[in-house]
Amino acid sequence: MPRPRLALVPGEPAGVGPELCVRAAQRAWEADLVVFGDRGSLQRAAAALALPLAFAAADAPAAPGVLPLVDMPHPVAARFGTPEPGNAASVIAALQAAAGACLRGDCDGLVTGPVHKATINAGGIAYTGTTGLLAAQAGREVVMMLANAIVRVALATTHLPLRAVADAITVEGLQRTLRILEAALREEFGIAAPRIAVLGLNPHAGEDGHLGREELDVIAPALAALRAQGMRLSGPLPADTAFLPQRLRECDAVLAMYHDQGLPVLKYSDFAHAVNLTLGLPYPRVAVDHGTALDLAGSGRADPSSLFAAIEACTRLARHRRHA
């Protein structure tokens, strides 16, 4: 089987993304990387780290110290720690160009660095996150899942105010999310019969309606219908005990009802090696699970573990998808 070719996007040029890509370029990987980014930002990062960096044509094989590059120039030279709204359009263009390469089949997967949302919006682009951007470009419904070696946590809702979460959880929405999650576990993770633990919304999973009826009226009916179609689902489960080690051994992924119900557990378990996956796209997309770290940019102290984990995960997913 040929080596996967992965598109790599540094993200915010004033943050740690470019230097993490430079660190990735020093290693040999089981996939060929091609960076969609600004040559000058990468060169400045390499100089700050005192690491060797040469560029090659986009279709060239990668080698330690060499990055195949699709140059996406930023109109304003980036300064470490100081995002520039004038670069917003080029940051988004790099993401779209890399995703377009995946949609065309030129690349087998997409790895993305951190983007500074406020700066993108200050640059005049309505932007709520890369997940939504890629979903719209591909015309697909998607699911956000974060993962490390300990647990995989998918989200029924993402970046919503807490008071809006209950209204956003519907039978149809849960079933759509679970179908996308189950298909991704089969096709990209190679799990023949995935087991998914589904959390309740309320404390103690509603305690038979005494602490809320969402479990009885929405979550349980959605699960029952999917179980009748052969899906292996447990729940709705109380969130306070669902992440016990023995419970996690009994499932392949957990579906949390909202962002801060599941992700604090995942990040506590192993934040450095956690990655963010977008499920439902026609290609694997894996992102780092941290922000732009503007205060660390250019210092050489940024930990590349999450980017390295993202590259390794995207390589595995690309291979599983080919096999499937």
Rank of each mutant, 00 (worst) to 15 (best):
L255D: 08
Q229P: 14
A242R: 05
P236S: 11
V288G: 11
Q229Y: 11
D270A: 15
D252P: 03
V288R: 11
L279P: 01
A192N: 08
Q229M: 12
A253E: 01
A253Y: 05
I191K: 14
H210R: 12
L199T: 04
M231N: 05
L233A: 06
A193K: 05
P284G: 07
D217I: 01
P203A: 10
P238R: 06
R249M: 14
D252F: 12
I196C: 07
A220N: 00
K267H: 12
R213S: 08
D270N: 14
D240K: 10
R285C: 14
G262C: 06
A272L: 07
P238W: 05
R247N: 15
N276P: 00
S269H: 09
R227F: 02
C251V: 11
N276S: 12
L226V: 08
T241Q: 04
L199P: 09
L255G: 03
A256S: 14
P238N: 08
S269T: 13
A192E: 13
A224G: 02
E214V: 04
D240M: 12
R232L: 14
V288A: 09
A239S: 15
G200E: 04
M231E: 04
A220C: 00
V198T: 13
L281N: 04
Y268D: 02
M231V: 09
L223E: 05
A274L: 03
V218Y: 03
L216S: 01
R195L: 08
V218D: 02
A193Y: 02
L211R: 10
D252I: 12
H259L: 13
E207S: 01
G235Q: 08
L216V: 00
L223N: 03
D260S: 09
A224L: 03
P264L: 11
L237Y: 13
P238L: 06
L263F: 13
G209K: 01
G280C: 05
L244R: 15
L226D: 11
L237S: 12
L216G: 00
L255F: 09
L223A: 03
M231G: 06
A205L: 09
E250T: 14
G262K: 08
L266Y: 06
L201Y: 07
Y258D: 09
A193H: 04
G262E: 10
N202W: 00
P203M: 07
D260N: 09
